[in-house]
């Protein structure tokens, strides 16, 4: 189980990276944390001719708050995300999600941007970003462009990033007044990918939730917002009846894919259970 042979270049600047991407095009793979990519290489599920190491790009690092947005550089490691005061203050949803991502040794190296760009449907961070209404900063030959998260995830491991582009950062609106976050997932084993996971945001006024965003992962080919369920809750005091309406509405929101251990029906059921738990958490103050 050894990776196939490839060339390697560690780029030192964003322009250099973009140049290599243009030159080597489809033969190249970008490696950041590598925690998802290296297993696929070792199993020979992927065989790039050249690996472009972007770990030296200062342009992709750092966490900062400006103009009402929390900007998280793509190369921010999971552990850095977890210990950032800015993230805890302005995007507590991410802080809640973080302990659920794999294990400490993986979080040492895995990157925020890598998780977003890889777009694994079972990954926590893409779903968080969707709930947070973030936007993605992508660099290419023609400079930077910004893509709203709603337009970013295209499908299974597919995103708006073009082959000659790279994800630079994500920008997340800072937590607004009355906004709450809640996160939960159901895993067979601690640190595994979830059977079903839910990252949620809402505005809360007492027990009345509004602007509810229920972002599910590990359900479909990409993270999905449950709009009908949110509608069932928005503006109403959260009681058993409202909860049940939201859970029922999920039928219209979700079209779960089965996996090795779970049918679509099980996933829908578990999504409903999670919805109940997460909404209750939001109504009672989030975490």
């Amino acid at each position: 189980m050894k990776a196939p042979s490839f060339d390697y270049v560690k780029v030192q600047s964003l322009p250099e990276l973009l140049g290599v991407l243009v030159e080597r095009g489809d033969d190249a793979k970008i490696i950041a944390g590598g925690q998802s990519l290296v297993p696929t290489l070792n199993m020979r599920l992927s065989a790039p001719e050249i690996l472009i190491d972007i770990n030296g790009l200062e342009e992709l690092k750092g966490i900062a708050v400006a103009d009402g947005y929390l900007r998280i550089g793509a190369l921010t490691r999971h552990y850095e995300l977890g210990r950032s005061d800015e993230v805890a203050a302005h995007a507590p949803l991410l802080a809640q999600a973080l302990p659920h991502i794999a294990h400490e040794a993986i979080r040492s190296r895995g990157t925020f941007g890598g998780s977003i760009a890889n777009a694994d449907p079972a990954a926590e961070l893409p779903a968080c970003l969707l709930a947070l209404r973030g936007r993605l900063v992508i660099a290419g030959q023609n400079g930077e462009r910004t893509v709203d998260v709603a337009d970013f995830f295209h499908g299974l491991y597919e995103t708006a990033i073009e082959p000659e582009e790279v994800l630079v950062a994500a920008e997340i609106p800072v937590l607004g007044g009355g906004e709450r976050a809640a996160f939960d997932e159901l895993v067979m084993r601690h640190g595994d990918y979830a059977i079903v996971g839910l990252a949620a945001m809402a505005k809360a006024d007492g027990e009345i939730l509004s602007d509810v965003r229920l972002s599910f992962f590990s359900v479909e080919g990409k993270p999905v917002l449950a709009a009908a369920a949110a509608d069932a809750v928005n503006g109403k005091p959260l009681n058993e009846e409202v909860l049940q309406a939201a859970q029922a509405a999920l039928e219209n929101d979700l079209d779960p894919l089965s996996d090795l251990y779970n049918t679509a029906a099980t996933k829908l059921h578990l999504a409903r259970v999670l919805t109940g738990r997460v909404l209750s958490k939001l109504a009672s103050g989030g975490a």
Partner: peptide
């Protein structure tokens, strides 16, 4: 005994 098998036993899925 995966969660799904328990849920099936309970008639929930």
């Amino acid at each position: 005994f995966t969660p799904e098998k328990v849920l099936k036993a309970l008639g929930k899925v």
